[in-house]
Computed example of a mutant assay.
Amino acid sequence: MVHLLKYIGGPLKPKEPTVLFIPGGLTSPAVFEGLGIFLPCQSAAIDWLMSDAPWELDIIGRRILDFVKEYDLGPTILCGYSAGGIIAMSAAIADQEGLVQGLLLSNTGANTLGHSDPDLPKNIQKSWPDHDLIDRFIKRCFARKCPEALYSILYEYAFRVPKEAAYACTASVRTIDLEPCLKDIQCPVLLAHGKDDQVRRQCHVDVLKNGIPNIELCYLDGGHTVMVEAHTQYLEKLLYFVSKIFTPKEK
């Protein structure tokens, strides 16, 4: 039996254009809260960490495709942030049916060469959930101070993530290398990168920019969690991309 991923949002209608928001590792879907109300299409946030195992990111990518097929969604855009970007790219690489029509990626990478926190899986295995570990994780995801209300939501969510899920997702981030497969992403991609990010740096941007055939790049005024820190700019790029992908092409 296939266990579908959990999602946050209203009932999904078949055949309708859809935006699926995919948060990063250890991160609540709340980082995308409020974006869907501005969209001219249906949307949902994939709560993959609170879904059933497995939690390895490339497998979650294939489960996204199962999700799209099971709900019989129309043209679908995946908005992947951080580890969610790896999930989105994995889905697009595995997509043989044209289910994924576009990717909006933020502060992610094809691999973790140059990543700022190589020891996170080991520390999770040693002690999870751990107050200091979660606190450091949240704080490094923001270039400026995280709003207190959002910090509480992110902290409580991370604290509830099962240890097995926390380890599996953070370990797979550090073993997956999508660079050789980026050429297989055939859909349009918009990379909206927070220019003050200290987790995913310019080296990660360059690999994606040079490897994905159909990619646009823009820099936003924020850190790692750019849809929060540069909310207005991110929303503008999201609306632009949705319009680009879902507007019928003239023949």
Rank of each mutant, 00 (worst) to 15 (best):
H3E: 15
K6G: 08
G10Y: 10
K13V: 13
P14V: 02
K15G: 04
T18K: 12
I22M: 12
P23T: 01
G24A: 08
L26S: 09
T27N: 12
E33L: 03
G36C: 10
G36A: 15
I37N: 15
L39Y: 02
C41Y: 06
I46N: 01
M50D: 11
M50A: 13
D52R: 15
A53Q: 13
P54D: 12
L57V: 07
D66V: 10
D72G: 05
G74C: 10
P75T: 04
T76H: 01
I77C: 08
I77G: 03
G84R: 04
I86W: 01
I87S: 00
I93R: 00
A94G: 09
L99P: 10
L104H: 12
S106W: 01
T108S: 00
T112K: 04
H115I: 11
S116H: 14
P118C: 06
P118E: 11
L120R: 14
N123M: 02
N123V: 04
Q125T: 08
K126L: 06
K126D: 12
S127R: 02
S127Q: 01
S127M: 07
P129G: 06
D130Q: 06
D135M: 09
F137N: 14
F137H: 08
F142V: 09
R144G: 07
P147R: 08
L150K: 08
L150V: 09
Y151T: 11
R160C: 00
R160H: 11
P162I: 05
K163T: 07
C169Y: 00
C169E: 01
S172L: 11
I176C: 01
L178N: 03
L178K: 07
P180C: 12
G194W: 03
R201T: 15
V205P: 03
G211P: 09
E216A: 15
L220I: 00
G223L: 05
V226F: 07
V228Q: 07
V228T: 14
L235D: 09
E236N: 14
K237W: 06
K237V: 04
F241C: 00
V242W: 06
S243C: 14
I245M: 07
P248H: 03
E250I: 14
K251F: 01
